[in-house]
Amino acid sequence: MPLPFLTADRAFEAADDVALPFDDRDRWRRPYRPGPWRVGAAALLLLLASYVLFAAVIIALAGTPGAAAVVFGIALAVIAASLRLLRMGVWVSAQGLRQVGFFTTRTLPWAQVVAVRTVQQPVRWLGLPRTLQGQALTLVRGARSGGEPTPLMTTHDADFLGRPDAFDRAADTVEAWAAEAGH
């Protein structure tokens, strides 16, 4: 079964001369592949879920269906968490820009985007409180939203840690989407 949220469109890598080589611009897409840290964490969660599912089967065979249902529910929650972890990131389409977090998703129409730019600033390492000097792709919204730059992705998050070229390609692609939308 193909999982479209795991792969970025490979057309960007194939066509270097075209900034936005997509046929269907109305479809939400992530302009980069998930990084090895994110995929590794999701794989570990899925491995944990397989053990929990096996425990649910053993509990069900032991004759306590209520406890088996609880453990099965825990396994489903772990699977849902790993899939949500893989879905996190920045998504773009003709409608706007979407930032998918673990618990929240924010969608911003291109009309409300003032600027998308790459800046050198202190960034959080893998989302932890520790900060390092790095690059961040920031989003500047309209004056009604405060106008403060919001970091969309950084060189030290789970998708780009140790992959500066991938960050540059992804940042360029998001900036190209914003430029095409007129910002």
Rank of each mutant, 00 (worst) to 15 (best):
T107G: 10
L126I: 03
S145E: 14
A56K: 00
Q95I: 10
A171R: 00
L85D: 02
L132V: 15
R10S: 13
W91S: 10
Q112Y: 13
W37R: 04
L76Y: 04
W28G: 01
L132H: 13
V92N: 05
A171P: 00
L6F: 06
I59K: 13
G66M: 14
F72S: 08
M1R: 09
A67I: 15
S82G: 08
E175Q: 15
A8I: 04
S82P: 03
Q133L: 12
V119T: 09
R30M: 12
D9N: 09
R130W: 14
A170H: 04
P149M: 02
A80T: 05
S82Y: 05
P151I: 00
G142F: 12
P151R: 00
L83A: 13
A81T: 10
D23N: 09
A171W: 00
A170C: 10
F103Q: 03
V123P: 03
R38T: 05
I59A: 13
A158L: 15
L47G: 04
R87Y: 12
Q112I: 06
L20E: 05
L61G: 02
G127F: 10
A68L: 07
I74E: 01
Q95D: 15
P149D: 07
L108M: 15
W28L: 02
A94I: 02
L85R: 03
R163T: 09
F72K: 03
Q112T: 12
R25H: 07
L48T: 07
T105K: 14
F12R: 11
V114Y: 07
G63E: 11
P21W: 08
W125R: 06
V70W: 15
A115G: 10
V174M: 01
V39P: 03
Y32R: 02
D168F: 09
H183I: 11
P21M: 08
L161N: 03
R106L: 15
Q112W: 13
R27G: 03
I58C: 03
A15C: 06
G134P: 02
A181V: 09
G63I: 11
P31G: 06
A179Y: 07
L3H: 01
H156E: 11
P34D: 06
A11V: 02
L6T: 07
L6C: 03
I79W: 06
D9P: 03
F54E: 05
V92E: 06
A14P: 02
H183M: 09
W28T: 01
H183S: 11
L86P: 00
A19I: 01
A60Q: 12
R163C: 05
D16G: 08
